[in-house]
Design a protein around this nucleic acid. Structure first.
Lengths: 341, 341
DNA sequence: ATGAAAGCGCTAACAA
DNA sequence: TTGTTAGCGCTTTCAT
């Protein structure tokens, strides 16, 4: 056992700083925590001692002593369909940069619904979407941990939620198709276990209904967001006896798959089929025809969630806010007016 | 406002468990830490008390007492080009799931090169790529923190590295093009500040050289990995007086951009230009022509890094390992034999 | 096999 | 304005 030298990186503690600067540890603590009641002269001495010794306070000791923690846990369901999407990275990016800015530690949990999260010592929780892991959310709430949920609008729970208006976004997309003259409009859903997919389906139905178009169940194709299922859906859609002339697809990556299938079957986009996606995934810009889609403010949603969490933590009580961010139609080249037929 | 009771979630401590099970806190501690010297009967009593009270030890107190931490920090440069790539998500995913499996806490740092990371209380560090943040790496090493670097092969540093054989992968890609009969082969580089891009360029040169093809500087187009620069590069490449018949592009997303530009200019892929990318980004499967590319074992690399870190932590001394994972050519449809011309 | 007691490094009353 | 001191919750000798 090379237990010989434990010394090399002997941690310097607040005591070392106190000694070096000739004050008590309390004063050092005050300086560290920027408490005003320290004579300028002492403050300077302490600060320089800190610098010289390269002192960094032990966060563990701080947290033990204060009972507070500035650790924020971001919970992302390790759910293939969702995780692999453009979505996850944007969320991580948004939350990550905002945490960095706010000096919060970001703990990342890629979890499945069954596992119990260790909540002890967590200052706040951000749940990115809720897919079967509602129990984890409720657990967090019960324990009184400041919590915010993103991309899932929990109407029944006393918790801050920040979500995108999926329903409105979908409705807008379908309305656009209708304005273009389409009547036979199909929808390829995502996994309706996710609220986002369910809401998009709802928006689709709403738009049809408001425009007096009768819903045809044959025009609705359910998937789990995967490309594989999108492919089957696209094939069925295109080979149907009375095929739709337009389709609203619940995600861009699936929409791209639909385009690919259409091409393989010799159809032209948008001549033979108009397509609207959802996400504003940069991949949609590639391909022969740029994809018309619905943009979600993901980064903003992620950043807002951290801010909201910070507010909750500072407030020291639960005063949930519900925020619904609008989604925006981005018109590109994958749709054209319906002409005759 | 239902904020009347703040009491409900009073943290239960080891003392509560001790009282409930009629033993000392020491014994409880022993049970928690699975130290054998506890009578079965007591063990059971403690365990059931733990369960009843839903006791979870305070990690902060544990870490304060032991001086050890099972927190792993993953440092990802907040560097646009890299962060936005397919790469980042795969790394996060791989590291995240492995940490979850190994019961390690994953702290995520999206950092820029200038910021000083707080290393105090960190059990281990994983640097995902080194882009200008070598100082952070050296700092970590100096402090004796178990550290592993992924996607950057640091030959000169006593640190564990796990990287992909970018040079070999690139060489393979270019060799393939040469075997197809191409002689006029261009290369669109990534940001050569990143080792990956530099190595890919090196592999490109190596392949040409070994096959006795003279390097033409005009065939090398430098970019920062962004789509914008890829676009300019593609335009210059295609509009050149003596254009290349094949191009090796340092990333799939750029390769897709090249394809888009080619189409816009009325060129056919692969008839007029053969293209090989790098990454095996799923987006490469869309588009009219599936992209031939070089696959990197990203997830595996990420997972290995956590395992290696765990090994280092357990070892309690620095015994760095250097691991180079092979990259694999994935042949799809974007290349064809060179025929006359 | 078990427990008492001394820390781990810091913060927060309370005194001075 | 500053210092003294009592914890925070746990681990770890050292006795027993």
């Amino acid at each position: 056992m090379t237990r010989t030298k434990k010394l090399p990186s002997k941690n310097i503690s607040i005591l070392d700083v106190a000694r070096k600067s000739g004050v008590s540890i309390t004063t050092v603590s005050r300086v560290i925590n920027k408490i005003g009641t320290v004579k300028e002269k002492n403050r300077i001495r302490v600060m320089s001692a800190v610098k010289e010794l390269k002192f960094q306070p032990s966060v563990f000791a701080q947290r033990l002593a204060t009972g507070k923690s500035n650790v924020v846990a971001l919970v992302i369901p390790r759910y293939e369909g969702v995780f692999y999407s453009f979505y996850a990275l944007e969320i991580i990016r948004g939350v990550g940069t905002m945490c960095e800015a706010l000096k919060l530690d970001l703990l990342l949990h890629l979890t499945d619904a069954r596992s119990t999260l260790s909540l002890r010592g967590i200052g706040g929780m951000i749940f990115s979407d809720i897919i079967g892991n509602r129990a984890q959310l409720e657990d967090s709430l019960e324990k009184g941990i400041p919590t915010v949920v993103i991309n899932y609008y929990a109407e029944d729970l006393e918790v801050s939620c920040i979500a995108v208006d999926n329903c409105g976004g979908a409705e807008g997309a379908v309305n656009y198709l209708i304005e273009l003259g389409h009547r036979k409009i199909a929808h390829i859903t995502g996994d309706v276990l996710t609220q986002a997919a369910a809401k998009r389906l709802e928006g689709y139905k709403l738009a049809l209904q408001k425009n007096g178009i009768k819903l045809k169940e044959e025009y609705i194709f359910h998937t789990d967001y995967s490309r594989g299922q999108a492919r089957s859906a696209a094939e069925n859609l295109l080979k149907a006896s009375d095929p739709a002339t337009a389709v609203f697809v619940a995600s861009d990556s699936m929409a791209l798959e639909v385009m690919a299938v259409a091409r393989e079957l010799g159809r032209d986009i948008p001549r033979d089929l108009s397509i609207v996606g959802f996400d504003d995934n940069p991949s949609g810009l590639y391909g022969p025809v740029a994809l018309t889609t619905v943009r979600q403010p993901l980064i903003r949603m992620a950043e807002e969630s951290v801010k909201e969490l910070n507010r909750l933590i500072a407030l020291k009580k639960n005063a949930p806010k519900k925020i619904l961010l609008p989604a925006e139609l981005v018109i590109r080249e994958s749709c054209k007016p319906f002409s005759g037929g």
